[in-house]
Design a protein around this nucleic acid. Sequence first.
DNA 1: CAGCGACAATGAACCGTTTCCACGTCTATT
DNA 2: AATAGACGTGGAAACGGTTCATTGTCGCTG
Lengths: 336, 336
Amino acid sequence: MPKVGIRDVARLAGVSTGTVSRVLNDHPSVTQELRTRVSGIINELGYMPDPSARSMRSKVSRLIGIVIPDLTNPFFSELVQSAEQAAADHGYNIIVMTSFDHAAKEADRIRQLTSRKVDGIILVPSNDFHTLKLPKGLPIVVVDRLMPGYSGIASDHSNGVRLGVEYLLKLGHCRIGFISGPKHSVPANDRLKGYLEAMEHAGGAVQKIGSTLVAEAAFDYESGRSAGNYLLARARNERPTAIFASSDQQAIGCMRAAYDLGIPIPAALSIVGFDGIPLSSMTIPRLTTVKQPIQKIAAAAVAVLLNEQPVPSIGNSTLFPCELSEGETTAAPQPD
Amino acid sequence: MPKVGIRDVARLAGVSTGTVSRVLNDHPSVTQELRTRVSGIINELGYMPDPSARSMRSKVSRLIGIVIPDLTNPFFSELVQSAEQAAADHGYNIIVMTSFDHAAKEADRIRQLTSRKVDGIILVPSNDFHTLKLPKGLPIVVVDRLMPGYSGIASDHSNGVRLGVEYLLKLGHCRIGFISGPKHSVPANDRLKGYLEAMEHAGGAVQKIGSTLVAEAAFDYESGRSAGNYLLARARNERPTAIFASSDQQAIGCMRAAYDLGIPIPAALSIVGFDGIPLSSMTIPRLTTVKQPIQKIAAAAVAVLLNEQPVPSIGNSTLFPCELSEGETTAAPQPD
DNA sequence: CAGCGACAATGAACCGTTTCCACGTCTATT
DNA sequence: AATAGACGTGGAAACGGTTCATTGTCGCTG
């Protein structure tokens, strides 16, 4: 099976290779008639241009790199999947890489992608991104974990949390605990900010206790569990009647903690999570959570890289609103 | 910033481009002395060979495609992540694609990868793979869902299930229900086979009821739930005292069903899942499950594509053993 | 000591596109 | 009618590596 090249197409169509190339790239300066004739031959021969040759000359690889801390995290896997879809719609493909939240590995991956001549990178930075120097000259869009000094795309974490906390307030809760993310994580701090603002805004009795009910934890299940244990290990009339967790995994860990302590959900404790991962609708009972618009974020990131949307200016990032998804882990508080 | 090319390196090192190329590719016929000198210059200049140019001439892209039905499925996302790691160890990168279990999309993705000149493809076929023609001349390794007629790599589903069922038998269960996967799915049938064999092997009273306690379902959570409802909706002395589910998601759905019916786990019902996804250790109570060696599978698949391992001969696939992971959803049955 | 093979290194051809420039034709302008 | 510009196409250079045939050097052998 001799592989067919652009010259074969040109010969059979009786045109020059340049013309075939122009047809291939939808260059406007080709007669309609020629265009159809050439495309005909192309289909007939099943000709597919060699991407290496193409990219070597044109400096365009139609490849997008995406670097995330952990593909096992459902939030990121959904992000990757959505990005893949969006990219495919434009004839682009995705190279995935996992940094395992390890700065050195992350830098290495970015270097690899750079040398691969990808057309752009979607980056969810590791938590210690401070050491990270992004290469110039290559479009990079930072997603989810915004880096100060760089612009990016994320959901509006702080307002999202406020949404959830206000929901709890409206149900009548006063002692609302908060499981925060890692101290140095940007989105974690945004979420904490949302909580503190909502509590402050509520004023009165609520306000005073706000800051005493915050537990810091990693975003994972196990950390959520111990944070939950910490928050719930006090006298009944002092412990929170509701807990807002900064991630769904934390929330689920916290549910586990409550279960182990014999605290019924939602009768004696309301729980709200954050993220809206598929898992959140599979728990028993179903988790109330604040949902991030992952698909929108992914699509926007791809659009930016393909120059369909302007790159958000430095320090001026694009934020998408979150949405409250009511489950079965929330109810009005019991009287003390 | 003028980009440095191989000629620059050659000039500065006082050698020909051919020599630099051979240094780059660890070709043996270069003096040790020259090799070190050239590598020195390479590092000094920060030279990185252009992969397009490279692959155009050499026909090697150092790219591996991986096509899976759904990246949101934790089993597959872990598979991809493991494959990425294994590939990176060899200087290869991964292009991910999602088929959404849609045969046409799948064929299209494979075509895309072929035209991208990837060095190999890791494929988890969609469920209706019968219409699928794999391109010749491109190494493809089929993973997890083996295709009759093609060889591949997977875990030993049937023996894995047997492991779980035998565990239940040893606990004293007789009426063991089974939630099967989709009828046309190869691994689903392998798992069913494992169940039937284990039941048959148990003999006696157990044997007779075996086949009456099988419910067919998709692999997802919701299907597991309705299958659970179906199996449990009978008189107490007729309903199963244990259920083996063909996926963890099914198992969790089934837990939900039991919960809704007021059947305590594991007191009145033992449940065992299959897959060993991270989620399985987060349920309340923790799910007992049969764990697939995902990392081994991924590493083996990559090794095959890189010609480090022989391609398993047609019809003679490589199977990795599974492992039982004891959780809290299993116990001895209550007397009727 | 001549001849030969093995080995290192060179230099140019080559991979398959895109892109640039030149050329001929056709229309619009003066 | 002559000239300018616009337009469509052909032809060849260019992209940045790898590979292959070739040349030049050794060390060995007969």
